[in-house]
Design a protein around this nucleic acid. Structure first.
Length: 423
RNA sequence: GGAGAUUUGUCCGAGUGGUUGAAGGAGCACGCUUGGAAAGCGUGUAAACGGGAAACUGUUUCGAGGGUUCGAAUCCCUCAGUCUCCGCCA
């Protein structure tokens, strides 16, 4: 969430940013400031009373030590009368703090300067496009048919075991999946990212930290019996490694990568949007997370974009990079690049990666900080991106690389997969 | 799942109701000392939220939350983590 102090001293800038993000409830800002004014007054008064009480209590202690019992008793009676006021302030303060927090949680992150103005996906800017759209042979198939033809993924049995949206990968399909995970991880590690295998289940505080909670609980699977959540992305456990930490500046930037399955309840749309591997409840993803000083986060964002871009290139897939407009960006993001890969048989673009700078929006919630040269604590910036989400990569890989003889495996995957082709 | 122990600052560790935000030690930073280093000596060394132009200062925080009390790290309740033993188990 945004920092209160920032909102207070940059009211105009905040309003402008929220407009760009297409945020409707602009009154909220003035309401927050007004409630916070009240909070400050309450805290000031309450602190004064508490100070008075503490001083009196100390005095009582000394009186008792000196054996002046009667004076002590008199003092006690006096402090007792303070109690009621103190309690009522505590109640009011807690209430106002709750109100401010509740409003603050509804304010999305502000878009960065370079974010284009716009309302929907149609207003996103294509930053660049690369790779030729392949001309497929006659009889070329969409991936859901290729999957059946080569017996790579069994959706029916996935439904039997769990329900719709849960795929059963088998044989060469499973191996190709594993080959990609291995390759993606090795690629990230070679670029200086440290690999983690985090828990796939997180508690409330972690889901809150990255912004999944509150409000978006419907998107996650929740295990009520233990009050834990299945992760929707590795971003959640990995970024939370540093929750409530002050990271020494010598350790920055922090570069982490992790493969995890991702679980998403999202009901979503129907028909060809969700056909095959386009949208599933459980999928594999390799994620990269960066924690960095504020001054370098936008350089890091570009660095991450290049990193993901080269990875997609190495798979020989045609792709384009979009810079999302204000209205299409996520709640917590300040700037997001989406990567889309062209799916030749479906004749459409599929999102396979999203690389975002959250600035201090997440770190403010998680209290991920460092000390600057003056010894003051400063919030760090967090960034993350997929490198990459597997199902749609698999889908476009099957579709784009299909030949009448079989599916060609990209060279970089062959050592991991152990064959040149699925025939 | 059952029984017992335990949870204090960056770390170790003292502290069972009263100037304790917290002894002592280590680490770290700065200064002195030194040809240089080490040792030694001295000083400093938490965070959040307030007040103040600043110096400075108030409040809160001793696993988390609640309670008792004029006053709680210290007493009571609930929950969580860690360790040991037993049970179950890949």
């Amino acid at each position: 969430m945004l920092q209160l102090g920032f909102i207070r001293s940059n009211r105009e800038k905040v309003l402008e940013g929220l407009k760009k993000k297409n945020f409707q409830d602009l009154d909220l800002i003035d309401k927050i400031i007004a409630s916070d004014d009240l909070r400050k007054t309450l805290q000031f008064n309450s602190d004064e009373l508490l100070a008075k009480r503490n001083a009196a209590s100390k005095a009582i202690g000394m009186l008792i030590a000196q054996g002046k019992k009667e004076e002590a008793e008199a003092q006690k009676a006096e402090v007792t009368t303070l109690k009621e006021t103190i309690d009522s302030y505590a109640v009011q303060l807690a209430e106002v703090e709750g109100i401010v927090e509740g409003m603050l949680l509804r304010i999305p992150n502000l878009p960065g300067e370079r974010v284009p103005v716009g309302k929907s996906a149609e207003d996103n800017t294509v930053v660049r496009q690369h790779g030729d759209i392949p001309k497929l042979h006659d009889g070329a198939l969409p991936h859901w048919d290729l999957i059946t033809k080569y017996d790579l993924v069994d959706f029916q049995t996935g439904v039997k075991i769990t329900g719709s949206g849960f795929a059963l990968y088998k044989g060469r399909g499973a191996k190709l999946q594993r080959a990609m995970i291995q390759y993606f991880l090795d690629y990230n590690i070679a670029a200086g990212y440290t690999e983690f295998i985090p828990p796939y289940v997180v508690n409330y505080a972690s889901a809150y930290g990255t912004g999944q909670l509150p409000d978006k609980e419907g998107q996650m699977y929740h295990m009520a019996i233990d009050d834990l959540y299945l992760i929707p992305t590795a971003e959640v456990p990995v970024t939370n490694i540093y929750r409530d930490e002050i990271i020494p500046s010598a350790s920055l930037p922090v570069k982490m990568t992790a493969y995890t399955p991702c679980f998403r309840r999202e009901a979503g749309s129907f028909g060809k949007d969700v056909r095959g591997l386009n949208r599933v409840h459980q999928f594999d993803k390799v994620e990269v997370v960066h924690i960095t000083e504020a001054s370098t986060s936008y350089d890091v964002l570009e660095e991450m974009v290049l990193h993901v871009e080269k990875l997609i290139q190495s798979l020989g897939l045609p792709y384009r990079i979009l810079l999302l407009c204000g209205g299409d960006m996520g709640f917590a993001s300040a700037m997001t690049y989406d990567f889309e890969v062209y799916s030749a048989a479906q004749e459409r673009w599929l999102e396979v990666s999203s690389v975002s700078n959250f600035e201090s929006f997440q770190s403010n919630r998680m209290k991920i900080r460092t000390k600057d040269e003056n010894g003051k604590t400063q919030l760090l910036h967090t960034l993350n991106g997929s490198s990459l989400a597997l199902p749609r990569i698999l889908a476009s890989l099957l579709e784009n690389h299909q030949t009448p003889e079989g599916i060609l495996i990209p060279e970089v995957l062959r050592p991991y997969f152990g064959a040149d082709m699925i025939a």
